[in-house]
Computed example of a mutant assay.
Amino acid sequence: MIESVKLRRDSAADFYSHYEYLCALQDSVPLPAVRACLREGVLDFNADRLRVVDWAPLLNTLKVNKNLPLISIKSFFQPWLGDTVSDRSRVCRSRIPAVRSKDVSFQLCKALKGCLSVSGALKNLELNGLVLRERDLTILTKGLNKSTSLVHLSLANCPIGDGGLEIICQGIKNSITLKTVNFTGCNLTWQGADHMAKILKYQTMRRHEETWAESLRYRRPDLDCMAGLRRVTLNCNTLVGDLGASAFAESLSEDLWLRALDLQQCGLTNEGANAFLKALETNRTLVILDIRKNPLIDHSVMKAVIKKVIQNGRSAKSEYQWVTSPSVKESTKTARQKKKTIILGSGRKGKATIRIVFFLANSYPKLLNQVLLCFFER
């Protein structure tokens, strides 16, 4: 066997070994952030920690790999948070991670396209907080069109906007395996919601045709085995509004397959909620319609919507659960990590310095006051 062919086959079967080999070729070692979960068959890392030179061996291994079931690549970089204007020009270049550059993000999507095209094991692809441009999404879509195994796709907190979602939808609509998509915090408006609603309509029409063909053969169609989306998550897109809700409601009135739709913090009012109520008069398959954290919806209307979907769920075996809003988790995590040093008074032994960890300070203001009171009493 030709050596290059053997090497390619080995790399497709064992991600870690080939990644280690390529790192050795450039006199480096596998990054702890990357290799942490590889022994369990999972690629899960913070992309902000990688330099430009670190990406080459990783991407060259990724594009031919066939055995990873889950790929999760995250970026938490927030440019210039807390910096003054004078600080930005001095430190912006050194702070910006390599993954934010046009070339690295394109090469990453190119490698993912290769992996999606050849892998029969990849079921979950999560890209969180990455800046993906039009050409990145275009090449990623080509991989989605060729994938034969992907079940879950998440682009949460990637600011792709309505135009980017329209590109991704071209890879979603004809997928035979994709069941759930997550576009939380993607800067979407009602137009993005309309793109997703059209995908649901397209898949509904295609499945009705398949159902009709099965009935002509005197067979009872198995709706659960048919291809198409089962869950759509668009939380934290505040400009979706009632126009987006109405687009979804129209597609849901004749849909028999979608099980869950998440629209937390999407700027909905009573008008959008009532549109969903009307759709639920004919829809009996939707078991989760999450419109919580839309403060402009009256409590009575919210209760009526939730009551309807709960009634739908009683007659079905539901594998879908109500999710906690991502913004709540992120704010809690941030609050727990915040630390401040406060200098309080002075005494015979010098200044007393107390490091106070403000975990959930907003939730426990009385506890914080008691800590300060105890200090002053001493």
Rank of each mutant, 00 (worst) to 15 (best):
L62R: 02
Q203E: 04
E214N: 06
A275S: 14
K179C: 06
H18P: 01
N65Y: 06
E250Q: 12
Y16F: 15
A33D: 11
R93N: 09
C115E: 05
S17Q: 08
Q337T: 10
A260H: 01
N294E: 06
Q203K: 03
G192T: 05
G345A: 07
A36C: 11
S105C: 15
E209P: 01
E254M: 15
L252V: 07
L122P: 01
I306K: 13
R314K: 12
K349G: 10
I139Q: 10
L165S: 05
I306S: 14
R35I: 14
D255C: 15
D10H: 05
V42N: 04
D242F: 04
Q170K: 13
I2T: 12
P30G: 03
S72K: 07
S28H: 14
P57I: 05
I96Y: 03
S251M: 06
A249T: 01
N369G: 12
I73T: 02
S251P: 02
V34S: 02
N369D: 09
C236E: 13
G350V: 07
K303E: 14
R39P: 04
D103R: 08
L243C: 11
S117W: 00
I96V: 09
L81Q: 06
W212G: 04
P295A: 11
L62V: 12
N65T: 03
C92D: 12
R378W: 01
V99T: 11
F376L: 15
I172M: 04
K146Q: 15
V53H: 11
S246W: 00
W212Y: 12
C236L: 14
V91Q: 07
V323C: 11
S327K: 13
R284Y: 14
G41C: 13
F183I: 09
G313T: 07
C37H: 14
W322P: 00
L122C: 10
C169E: 08
P326W: 02
A213Q: 13
N128D: 08
A335Y: 03
N182Y: 00
T285G: 06
K303R: 11
K179F: 05
N362R: 14
I291S: 00
F359I: 10
L25K: 13
I71W: 00
T180F: 02
I199M: 01
R8L: 14
S86R: 15
V301Q: 07
K293A: 08
R35S: 14
L165D: 00
I73S: 01
F359L: 10
R230M: 09
D242A: 08
R133K: 13
R314V: 07
H18I: 01
L132Q: 04
A279M: 07
Y21D: 00
S28P: 04
L373S: 05
C158N: 01
L243D: 08
V53S: 06
